[in-house]
Design a protein around this nucleic acid. Structure first.
Length: 191
DNA sequence: TGAGTGATTGACT
DNA sequence: GTCAATCACTCAT
């Protein structure tokens, strides 16, 4: 299956977030391979108060200002990592948060990393997904078209199967409908 | 320098 | 529904 090219990410961030549903994220690690079908994403834009980049560049968010097509991974709440796909041209500061995926490969490895949880919870939520796939701050800046991390074309999700709603866990710009998930999927973090 | 918050999660009432 | 875990960052001293 083909790898999504960098040009996929060099588009409007909200459109990329929507178009990522149904795509396959593959991560190779020394322990083995894991892969998920993306079922839940959120867009974070430059002029968006909820976006890390909205208050300028810092050491933590610097990767967000790179050219689209790389991973922005950050550490939050003192214990969790969150994976984003950087979008647009260099210097813009926009990205798509990967909130949930449906496991398609390496489920045993995910279970070992996550412990006793049902399969539809393995990658439900940004912190859970990074833990199940073995991602950490060490992956910040990694290419999304590389050997360790890549995103395959998968099967795009038709409009009637996509729900657009408000984002989760933010206190500012709550009303913007930039969260996308696959209707009726058991693998999303919240309904 | 220090208090408050956060793109979260799981345990508990 | 509440709350603690625990750290990078912001904003106000």
């Amino acid at each position: 299956m083909p790898i999504l090219p960098r040009s996929f990410y060099m588009r409007e961030t909200v459109l990329v977030a929507r178009d990522l549903l149904g795509r396959i994220l593959v991560v190779d690690s020394p322990e083995g391979r894991t892969a998920v079908r993306l079922v839940e994403t959120e867009a974070y834009l430059n002029d968006d108060p909820a976006c890390h980049a909205s208050r300028g560049k810092t050491k933590r968010n610097a990767t967000m200002f790179e050219r689209g097509g790389c991973a922005y991974v950050y550490f939050t709440y003192g214990m969790h990592f969150a994976l984003n796909f950087v979008t647009g041209s260099a210097g813009i500061g926009e990205a798509v948060l990967i909130r949930a995926g449906e496991p398609v490969e390496g489920i045993e490895l995910m279970r070992r990393r996550r412990g006793e949880v049902p399969d539809h919870r393995l990658c439900a939520g940004p912190g859970n997904l990074t833990r199940a796939m073995g991602l950490s701050i060490a992956d910040d800046g990694e290419s999304l078209t590389g050997r360790r991390i890549r995103v395959l074309t998968g099967l795009p999700v038709p409009d009637e199967m996509v729900v657009a709603t408000t984002r989760i866990g933010i206190s500012q710009a709550k009303e913007r409908p930039w969260r996308f998930y696959v209707r009726d999927s058991r693998y999303v973090s919240r309904r």
